[in-house]
């Protein structure tokens, strides 16, 4: 049996590998690392990231086709084996949803009658932008996805991204035709949330685990949370709209609430980017801001 490189001349080539270049480039990398630590938002880096993302998006889309086909095939084979079980689960879910539908219809009527009253101002609506996931950071520490819509579809940095289960993350880079979504599990992710019915407002902090934790900013006394309570975005800080479903409380560890996300990142294919504009306070209108504040405070108990 012959082994690669047994003939030592084979790999050694004509000139020795330049150690000098290697060490120089290592220094450059370390300098880059240090500089991106202190100026992550520097325009040069930002431009480079956006440019590469835009350039890579057609290639990634090319890849996405066959990958999806294979995944769908594998998925349908799996479905074939547990079709009975799924059927049973769906029946149970359908029965439950019918009850909810009845309740929702009733509530819709009640809300409509309240809205008909004088002095109600509807909050600004959002036009979601639909996009497909074409890339994903398959990295142990960076958790993000690339979607195939960018500034040309009015996507801006900071907008919320949801799929049909709940919040996925938010836009951190917007290129011309592609943008990057920072997932809730990334170590850089910070999203203001509240726990429904528990009077707990906090910030959901990603830690690369599949279940991020809420660290508290405000807690009225010893509010108890129970597993199963819903976690929603609080809209604090004016970054994301209020009331987007995030997940359910799964338990508590070291004073932090662990959240089981609604989003299932291994199945996220189509997302909606919510271009929600917060109502602006007009220069002359003190009353407008007072009203919106009153609205916000009235909203909390209503949802709780």
């Amino acid at each position: 049996m012959e082994f690669l490189g047994q003939d030592r001349r084979e790999g050694l080539g004509r000139r020795a590998h330049s150690r000098f270049n290697l060490i120089l480039l290592m220094l450059v990398s370390v300098l880059l690392l240090l500089s991106s630590l202190y100026s992550a938002q520097a325009s040069v880096f930002k431009k480079a990231r956006e440019g590469v993302m835009d350039a890579a998006s057609p290639v990634l889309m090319l890849f996405a086709g066959p990958i999806n086909a294979v995944n769908n095939m594998a998925g349908s084979i799996g479905d074939y084996f547990n079709v009975m079980e799924q059927n049973r689960a769906l029946r149970a879910e359908n029965a439950e949803l019918r009850q909810w539908m009845a309740e929702a219809l009733e509530l819709r009527e009640t809300v409509a009658s309240f809205e008909a009253l004088e002095g109600y101002r509807a909050p600004p609506g959002a036009q979601p932008i639909t996009a497909f996931v074409i890339g994903e950071a398959n990295d142990a520490f960076a958790r993000s996805m690339i979607v195939n819509a960018g500034r040309s579809s009015n996507i801006e940095v900071g907008q919320a991204v949801v799929d049909n289960h709940g919040l996925v993350g938010r836009i951190v880079e917007a290129g011309g035709s592609a943008s990057r979504v920072l997932l809730l599990t990334d170590i850089q992710s910070r999203v203001p949330v509240y726990v429904e019915g528990a009077d707990v407002e906090g910030i959901l902090v990603g830690n690369t685990r599949s279940m991020p934790a809420i660290s508290f900013t405000a807690r009225a006394e010893e509010a108890e949370t129970a597993p199963g309570q819903r976690v929603l975005t609080s809209g604090a800080g004016g970054a994301l709209p209020r009331g987007l479903p995030v997940g359910i409380v799964s338990g508590e560890r070291k004073g932090e609430i662990i959240v089981n996300l609604y989003a299932n990142y291994s199945r996220t294919r189509m997302v909606r980017v919510i271009n929600y504009a917060f109502p602006e306070i007009d220069a002359g209108g003190e009353s407008a801001s007072a009203e919106s504040e009153a609205e916000a405070s009235a909203e909390a108990p209503a949802e709780g």
Binding site: L25, V28, S29, V30, L31, L32, L33, L34, S35, S36, L37, A40, F45, A48, R49, V52, M53, A56, G135, A137, N138, D139, F141, A142, S144, I146, V172, E173, R180, L182
Partner: peptide
């Protein structure tokens, strides 16, 4: 650049 990590990490 593609995974959105800090520049210089993987190099």
């Amino acid at each position: 650049l593609l995974t959105g990590g800090p520049l210089g990490l993987w190099p």
